[in-house]
C-alpha cells in the first residue's frame, strides 16, 4: 500500500463519500483534526498519483431510465484485440471496455464492452454496431443483461489498528 497513515485516514474518511455541504473539505478536515489546506494538498497529491481519479457523483443509471444494461463479450483474435479494443472503447455508447483472460472451455471471450440503453432494443442495436466493427476478427459473442444490482459500495479499506 503506497499510502502513509494520514493518506489512509483520509481515504477511510472519504470512502463513504464527501458531505454535501458548502465547505466539504473543511468539514472532513475538522473531523480528521487537520486544517483544510493540508487536506486539500493531500487530495491534490493523491490525484496527481492517480489514487483519486476524480471527485464526482456516481449516478444510479437504473433510476435514470437506463434500465437495459448489457455486458457484451467477444472472442477476438489475440493478434488484433489491442487495435480493435481501442476502436470499441472509443465508441460513444461504450462506458467500459477491457481485455480479460478467457476461461476455456466455458468462457471463450476476451473482450468485454459495457453498453447501456433505455431498453433492450437500443442495447441490441449498439451491440450490432460493435459486431460490424469487429467483423471477421470476432469468432463468437454474447451479451449478459444485468437483472439486479446486488451490491454497490465502491472500495472499502479494512481498518488497521
Amino acid at each position: 500500500m503506497k499510502l502513509d497513515r494520514t493518506d489512509r485516514d483520509i481515504v477511510a474518511a472519504l470512502q463513504g463519500g464527501l458531505p454535501l455541504v458548502a465547505a466539504p473539505y473543511a468539514q472532513v478536515a475538522a473531523e480528521l483534526g487537520m486544517d483544510e489546506a493540508a487536506l486539500i494538498d493531500r487530495l491534490k497529491a493523491m490525484k496527481a498519483r492517480g489514487i483519486i481519479r476524480r471527485i464526482a457523483a456516481a449516478p444510479n443509471h437504473y433510476r435514470l431510465g437506463m434500465v437495459a444494461n448489457g455486458m457484451t463479450v467477444w472472442d477476438v483474435d489475440d493478434a488484433q484485440v489491442a487495435e480493435l479494443g481501442a476502436l470499441v472503447g472509443a465508441l460513444p455508447f461504450v462506458t467500459h471496455c477491457y481485455e480479460r483472460p478467457r476461461a476455456l472451455p466455458d468462457w471463450p471471450y476476451n473482450l468485454f464492452a459495457m453498453v447501456h440503453g433505455s431498453n433492450r432494443d437500443e442495447v441490441e442495436e449498439k451491440r450490432a454496431r460493435i459486431a460490424d466493427l469487429l467483423g471477421g476478427a470476432c469468432r463468437a459473442h454474447d451479451i449478459l443483461y444485468s437483472t439486479r444490482i446486488l451490491k454497490k459500495t465502491g472500495l472499502r479499506l479494512r481498518r488497521k489498528g
Binding site: L18, I52, R53, I55, A57, P59, L155
Partner: peptide, 25 residues
C-alpha cells in the same frame, strides 16, 4: 438538489473515485 437526488437513490454516491491499483491494491 444534490442532497435530494442522493436521498432518492438517483445518486448512489458522491465523492472521490479511488483507484485501488494506484494505491498498490
Amino acid at each position: 438538489r444534490l442532497h435530494r437526488m442522493k436521498q432518492a437513490g438517483i445518486i448512489t454516491r458522491f465523492g472521490p473515485f479511488f483507484d485501488a491499483a494506484a494505491m498498490g491494491g
